[in-house]
Design a protein around this nucleic acid. Structure first.
Lengths: 302, 302
DNA sequence: TTCAGATATACATAAATTGTATAGGAGAAA
DNA sequence: TTTCTCCTATACAATTTATGTATATCTGAA
């Protein structure tokens, strides 16, 4: 009764493909093939029918799948119970984060965590907003740090701090030489924007429409590095948060001006996966993140 | 959540000693030590307190032990369910057997089993009567083949066939030259008998007392091989069943005479462990054993 | 303080797991 | 039907992991 192998079995039953399971688990396809073979050897019967286009549960496989599902759930429940009972946060916590906030916030979190809870292991995946949300829903990350637009937290989200939006250009650009720039000035300005679908992109378009401003998406790029370099070359502008500006400034000589009238505000939020197991380790990481996100600490790190 | 490791944990909690667990599992002590260490690493807390005279559960260990016990039970339950659902007998079946009946009965069983149910793996342990009963009670064997004296089966035992008792001597001995020998003739005869405690030994003594015969235990030996060789050297007699006689005859030149007036009868019985899991494999093995024990087949193999 | 009995560690060896490359098959499309 | 494509299974080499032996270390008892 190998827990990992049976979890693979359940995944394979769901995906209908060993290759996809291999990708999802970050391993090779032959490996999955062997694990399933071993399970079948131990059971004395075929669990899957190989169809040349993937795998499908046999009648036997379908019969045991629900029992296995229940057992896997109870096993993970027990693992959590034990770790909770130990009183020491331990285990792996997976965080999905925006590239811009990964550093320095998560760097600080990591250092602090190592000191306070050395047994907690952090896994950080970087991604764009929509992808991080997908990860959260799938349960492939436990926590996420992302932008929220709504002024009030919901779904158990915790708002860490607000993030105004800056118009970013190459150094020396007259438009961004002042401390602030009005939203209306964005009209027909060549912008590099994030690819759709993006909640942030939608929000920008909405605000623009409300103010009769037409956004000119000269380029769509999800890569922050690419946005940065394009903007650095001059003649094109980006709309970024403070972290992204700070990070980008280390690479190119840039100049940023705060967007006002209206200010476009986002919130950096800490979100939990709805499928999340609320382990001690997870709680500890959340606690540390909130501590590290205190404004005074942030200022010191910025 | 490694099932095997947690079973070791439970055993260690019961025995209070890693060394004993190692012996019971047929592995080395450092191995057990490492498994426990790994469990403790994964849990984030000490499960055992090392006392210099073994190990004792910590408060934490005591707290998780019942949950682990329940989970281990449910896991094994599931394993059985799955194998039963497969419809194919599979898995390991452990049989405790008397040395005398291990061959040829179990040899035949093994061959037949391999043909009918190739996925069933047999583990045969040989031992004396009392030890086999211990194994049955402990659950360290699933099935046992042993002697029963009572004329009627009980406890779910299945009687395979009757086994009369023979007086065995070296070849050429006048006392055993006839086909039968009367019980009364055993009086003061130098005998090699099985060690106490032994149900068989007790039964012999009882019968002897009832007939006013005094048994002379010139030697007590549980080893069948030793009994055989001693008897083969002459001047001393043994009381054995037909299988033992047949097996011994292949080693030494012996002569056997059936004990009568009264005949002392035992039954070769198939017993199940009270803690036994009635798997398909176990049922298959029992079926095959009963088939192989049919008198006509036995005669052909004798 | 010494001794007996137990667990932990070091290291060499044996075994298993894993990934890459490749072969073999079953459906889909022409 | 035939070809093509996508997927699973197998061979093999390299690495990692697990295991046993010998030994060190520790704790409680006399």
């Amino acid at each position: 009764m190998d827990l990992a192998a049976w979890k693979v079995f359940l995944d394979a039953a769901e995906f209908g493909s060993l290759s996809k399971v291999a990708t999802a688990h970050g391993t090779s396809q032959p490996q999955i093939s062997r694990w399933i073979r071993d399970l079948e050897r131990d059971c004395g019967g075929r669990l899957f029918q190989r169809t040349g286009r993937g795998v499908a549960l046999t009648e036997f496989g379908a019969r045991v799948a629900p029992k296995v599902r229940a057992w896997v759930a109870s096993s993970e429940q027990l693992a959590n119970d034990i770790r909770t009972a130990s009183g020491t946060p331990i285990g792996n916590v997976r965080i999905g984060s925006l590239p811009s906030t990964a550093h320095p916030l998560l760097t600080t979190v990591f250092m602090r965590l190592k000191k306070l809870y050395p047994l907690v292991q952090l896994t950080v995946r970087e991604g764009q907003g929509a992808q991080i949300e997908t990860w959260l829903d799938e349960g492939s990350v436990d926590l996420a740090i992302l932008f929220r637009i709504s002024p009030k937290p919901k779904d158990g989200d915790i708002y860490l701090f607000g993030a105004p939006t800056y118009l970013v250009s190459a150094a020396g650009d007259p438009l961004t030489s002042r401390a602030t720039v009005e939203f209306a000035e964005l009209d027909r300005l060549p912008l590099v924007l994030f690819c759709r679908p993006s909640g942030w992109r939608n929000h920008l378009e909405e605000v623009a429409a409300k103010h009769g401003v037409s956004l000119n998406a000269a380029l769509e790029a999800d890569s922050l590095g690419m946005q940065t370099n394009i903007v650095g070359a001059g003649g094109i502008y980006a709309l970024l948060g403070p972290y992204a500006v700070a990070a980008a400034s280390r690479t190119c000589r840039l100049q940023a001006s705060k967007l006002v009238a209206p200010t476009v505000h986002r919130h950096v939020a800490l979100a939990m996966s709805p499928r999340g197991k609320s382990t001690l380790a997870c709680q500890a990481v959340m606690r540390v993140i909130r501590e590290c996100a205190k404004p005074d600490l942030m200022a010191a790190n910025r």
